[in-house]
Amino acid sequence: MIVEIAYYIGAILLLIGALFSVVAAIGILRLPDLYTRMHAASKTGTMGAGLTFVAIAVVAFDGPVILRALVGFIFLILTAPVGAHLLARAACLAGYKPSELTEINEYEESMK
């Protein structure tokens, strides 16, 4: 019984994760500039990959595998914001401008 329930939960987690990945890819296509695209990749994309790890932890029924899946999940959600922040900072300092939709840019003002 518990095995069946775990399988259903795992399946639903897989589907949600895959949907998040697709939405992140659509966001990368649709959003107007680099910085807004970063929001899509760093949050939605990470969530997509992370949920598949959680799905493995749910359906595996094997101690080491569950531990590894959770460690992988934690690793993923810790590195994603760091990577996004590094790239955003590098792009800002190199002088890539945000799109004209951007209303306030106090970072640029501070560098003048």
Partner: peptide, 17 residues
């Protein structure tokens, strides 16, 4: 995700630093 999938995305965006 809700923002990305909404049809009138551009009007909802007001990015800023």
């Amino acid at each position: 995700s809700v923002l990305i999938l909404s049809p009138n995305m551009k009007s909802k965006l007001k990015p800023g630093i």
